[in-house]
Design a binder for these strands. Structure first.
Lengths: 114, 114
DNA sequence: ATATTATACTTTGTAGTACAAGGTATAATG
DNA sequence: CATTATACCTTGTACTACAAAGTATAATAT
């Protein structure tokens, strides 16, 4: 696998918020669970130091909710859920992302592939 | 038209470098010409304060070349051209971008569109 | 003449984000 | 009783796009 470049980080920067909302939409996940889920995707292998502050921010912005769950003897886990505002935000972001992809695609089509 | 959100800026952040390389690939453009060209694309309406420092950076990184051209009585213009390294970088970025789009697409497909 | 507009490029300071590296705490394993 | 695994948190840093303002020159308007 190719080492991660500075640019890979920058590219992810914009889409990460969308990606996390999308990941939380089908069902609530706790931090590490979400992290491992994202690791399935080559371009989304982020670290805890990236994820937790981001989740905090999304919570402060009021688009996700968090609540501790104690399951049996296990360490308590903080589950994050997408709320109504989060669902709306996801829809908006999705649309905007699609538009951006279209624009970039159009620009790339005008290049010559020698 | 929808006002530009903080997120729009962040989303553009990652792809802007790719976009500029793609725009310069077919032929050399000067600053404002490139700016106007990008304004054709809704998600790529950047300002001079964004473009010129970015072009400087790409030049310092050695992936584009710049040279002043005096055409007739007009104000001299600085034309930017993609060099060989820039072409390579464009190819690499293109591949990585495609991969990222695929990943995000996969994530979005798993969401429910109620 | 001289003010304004258009063209073209430049500079400065700021805000937002992801990151690496380290930290805390607890329970299970060796 | 040391180590590993799980889980979440904190701090300081690097990078990028941006707004706002500036310089300089030529063409146009008053």
């Amino acid at each position: 696998m190719k080492a991660e470049s500075k640019w890979d980080v920058q590219l992810r920067k914009g889409s990460l918020e969308l990606v996390i909302l999308a990941a939380l939409q089908p069902k609530a996940l706790y931090g590490l669970e979400l992290l491992n889920y994202l690791h399935e995707f080559e371009t989304m292998k982020i670290s805890e130091g990236t994820l937790y502050p981001l989740l905090d921010r999304l919570k402060r912005e009021g688009i996700i909710d968090a609540n501790w769950v104690q399951e049996g003897e296990l360490r308590p886990r903080k589950y994050y859920t997408l709320n109504q505002q989060g669902q709306q935000r996801l829809t908006d972001m999705n649309a905007r992302w699609q538009q951006s992809v279209n624009d970039i695609h159009a620009l790339l089509k005008r290049t010559k592939t020698n």
